[in-house]
Design a binder for these strands. Structure first.
Lengths: 202, 202, 202, 202
DNA sequence: TATGAATGAGTTTTCATTCAT
DNA sequence: AATGAATGAAAACTCATTCAT
């Protein structure tokens, strides 16, 4: 391997460390206190260096979001590929989607970024794309369940998927904002019972 | 009426104009561009004067939110009091909750304020209180429907109310952020079909 | 006088003090070291306050330039109105135009701002307008000299005025940049002898 | 030729390409947007590499200026050596000096660098030297014209040369800044008519 | 020669908030 | 009640420059 390639690889690693640390910092202190220099301090590097890779803070946050969603997307793909009943897959899907708890960084970031979407076109595009991924995979999961006779034939797959995802978003918001009575366990329970009604198991 | 009372009443009106204009400005340009002095300009007054009434910008936003929710709460109360079938009331409830369209000011404000809740205790309390109002009234609506035999006896009212409200939040977010295929009409359709499944009409 | 008017007047005075101090600072240390906070320190105020009036540093510099040219324009008008021979007026015009010496703030500013004109439309407009003022007044001066029989009949007034002003610009640049042998006295001498050739005195 | 010499020559060529590209970039977008990495991109190399040759950006700009003036100096020398009347030579000198048009790179660079001269000693020295070259050659041209009886005996050569060059600077500034009515053709006309008055042709 | 990762000082700008009048 | 002058903290961002490889 040439020195150049090594250097390039170092950069890759550095970038990924930055994204990971950004998510961790958000999880610990919230996005409000995530300044460029605070993040640089955590990483033992300089603010300039972070922006050397990402250009602007907005783009850094977008990259962090994508990186975090990328990991979930992989878990989702793995989940879909497992040999499980559709019921079980759906249950795991719900668990995957909902926040791990108060201050879940992925959701903290989403809530913050929603506010910026109206004035940030690349962000809107990213959100659309990410949402589409969840919708597509949930539809696939449901369709397969129908095919296997686990869910009612005639299930309106896209509509039910949309509704379930909207419901999960609403529940997630509540969890991550710490609304009274909206911890992960309770919300998961709500998600499950609603799912059972929206997508009747035969 | 004394001069003092007249002045006080004038102050009330002035404050209400400020809140209304704040909501309009947010609907037009988003909260990010709503600075104190921009708002003052729209009102033909000074930033100092607005803060003379509200103390801080955060309190102004909170007041604006409360003012906007207050109006909805009144419509809600009126709705509950009307002589309509529970089905019909539920349908109107959904229409009342969902955003009027892209950039609906109430929802724009919510999305912006969610991001501030983690670091703003009074805001969290207000949110809780407002959400409780919707939950309480939806529960009442459902309970009455059960009582009248319109909804299944044994309906788990609080759970279904929570789920429906979470779903409405999720749908609303999408509408107000302008997600593809998430206009008011479509979202209302999703809300209706999901409601029919969550709260089976007999 | 109302308190409001007094406050407003205070603001005016404050703005003018800022412009004056900016020019003085430029004369003393050059434009390179004129940062917003350095200027604020000199004025015993805050950087925010300066930008409260001028919005951006660019606009502050433009205002400073205009303020400084305004003063010269008044001197120019006074000069044109005096009862002097055209010869004498022309001589005084040259003295007025040329820099007072190395680091003359007006010229320091011009040289700095020339570099910004290609990317700054308001600045270009201001420059055009200011140059037009000098051209117009020099043309008037020459025309009157012709009329009075002091300068050759048939003098091509606009052309000669343009040439003389261009020459003065060139000389001024050299003075203010401290080129060898280009002090004010020598440059004035060059200006005079060139003027005598371009605009023959009868 | 040794490998070392070949490499050295390659380096020369690389450096010259850099200078040329710098001038082109400046002509296209102005100096303000000429960052090291922008220039590196245009050249398909890295910022570090450019500085490997030039050390600092200031030195690069200075080298670019010198390189550009070097070419003009050669044209000037060629001009002086040609068998032409002094009148004709003077006319060609004016054409050589004035900018080719709006955004002429040599002049764009000059205007930008003037602003840096007060704080950059090597730059000042270079400017002096380059100006001296023009002055020296113009004096030689005029002196020869006098000698040949083309220009008035008794012509104060150094003074007239200074004045003409100052005038050319002033005209050039206007052309390159795009002042109204200051295109190359008009400015050349002004330069010619002023030259005819300053240096009377017998 | 050549790269590109890393630095970090330095500057403008924004805006809620205060307060004398 | 109303103004608007004044504050000042905070933060993003730029970019020439260095240096290990």
């Amino acid at each position: 391997m040439t020195a150049g390639a090594a250097r390039r690889r170092d950069g890759r690693i550095a970038q990924e460390r930055m994204l990971e640390e950004a998510m961790t910092a958000i999880a610990e202190d919230g996005l409000a206190t995530l300044t460029m220099s605070a993040l640089a301090d955590r990483l033992g590097t300089s603010g300039g260096h972070i922006l050397y890779y990402f250009g602007t803070k907005d783009r850094l946050l977008l990259a962090a979001l994508r990186w975090s969603e990328q990991q979930l997307a992989e878990e989702r793909t793995a989940l879909l590929g497992r040999r499980l009943t559709a019921h079980r897959k759906l249950a795991l899907f719900l668990e995957l989607y909902l926040p791990r708890g108060l201050r879940d960084p992925r959701w903290t970031l989403w809530i913050e970024l929603w506010a910026r979407i109206p004035s940030n076109e690349p962000l809107r595009a990213a959100q659309q794309e990410i949402d589409d991924g969840w919708q597509r995979d949930l539809e696939a999961l449901l369709a397969k369940g129908v095919e296997q006779g686990r869910f009612a034939a005639g299930l309106e797959v896209p509509a039910r998927a949309s509704e379930l995802l909207a419901l999960l978003d609403g529940l997630s918001t509540r969890v991550v904002l710490g609304e009274r009575g909206a911890d992960r366990a309770t919300s998961l329970e709500r998600a499950r019972s609603a799912a059972a009604l929206l997508i009747p198991h035969l």
